[in-house]
């Protein structure tokens, strides 16, 4: 893992609040590491749902955290039983999700379904439960582990996650649920005029971000540099990756 990768995970962790219930979806090891890092630093009673299993208040062995949310030993060590078929029956208490994406657009919409490249349709893994998970959520994020013009586009080919505040409002959904689009180079926040850059990674210029983003964006006057990773954060992340408490 590079220093940039570490800072990206920490940037996700910093968005996690002490009273959150964080949803770790399929293949979201970075989100999982971020949640466990937050648990070790400022959210000791963080509630985490790793797809097939509930792990309450950090009592699960850290060594069980694997690259798979549906690993046998992890499921066996669950502390409460997850019923996937009823996962969306309680929309009044939705969890905080960090949606992944094939594409994210200038309005804050994300696509996990498919896109067209060189005249061919390229399929993704599918939307999973994100359309439902993000519809009535108080807060959700889009976490994109790469930052390039192919992934950050003017308009997504298909919408899996509706982040656009105006479109959400028109459909009676909470308009401000999307909090940020987090990438290794920075973070964007939704505005009525589209995504605006609110955070930039140290050593990356605004021009670098513009070149590597496939849509025009405004930069907040108070766009800040992403704070460098602290020693406590680095140590906590290292312990998470080593499977240590």
């Amino acid at each position: 893992m590079s220093a940039a990768d570490d800072l990206y995970v920490i940037a996700i962790a910093r968005r996690i609040r002490i009273d959150d219930i964080v949803h770790v979806g399929a293949s979201q090891l970075d989100v999982w590491q971020a949640a466990e890092t937050a648990r070790r630093l400022w959210a000791p009673k963080l509630r985490v749902v790793a797809a097939g299993s509930f792990h309450l208040c950090g009592a699960a062995s850290p060594a069980l955290m694997r690259s798979r949310t549906y690993a046998r030993d992890l499921i066996s060590a669950r502390q409460a039983t997850f019923t996937q078929s009823r996962v969306f029956d309680d929309l009044k208490r939705t969890r905080v999700a960090f949606a992944g994406a094939l594409q994210v657009d200038s309005r804050g919409n994300a696509n996990l379904i498919s896109f067209t490249a060189k005249g061919k349709i390229v399929r993704g893994p599918g939307s999973g439960g994100l359309p439902t998970l993000t519809s009535h959520a108080d807060r959700f994020f889009i976490a994109l582990p790469r930052h390039d013009a192919r992934s950050l586009v003017a308009k997504v080919d298909r919408v899996s996650v509706l982040g656009d505040p105006r479109a959400r409002e028109a459909l009676g959904l909470p308009p401000t649920s999307l909090q940020a689009v987090i990438t290794p180079l920075g973070a964007f926040a939704p505005t009525s005029d589209g995504l605006a850059l609110v955070e930039r990674t140290p050593s990356v210029s605004l021009e670098d971000v513009r070149v590597r983003t496939g849509f025009a964006f405004s930069a907040y006057q108070d766009c800040v540099e992403r704070a460098p990773i602290t020693k406590d954060e680095q140590d906590a992340l290292a312990r998470v990756r080593a499977g240590l408490a």
């Binding site: 439902t132 009535h136 919408v159 899996s160 996650v161 509706l162 459909l171």
Partner: peptide, 24 residues
Amino acid sequence: LTALRAAAQKLPYATWRCGLGTHA
């Protein structure tokens, strides 16, 4: 899950308030 519930409960349709405005 909503479509499966409609099938299980022999409903002509069921309703759902999520996924609006998406291609899903």
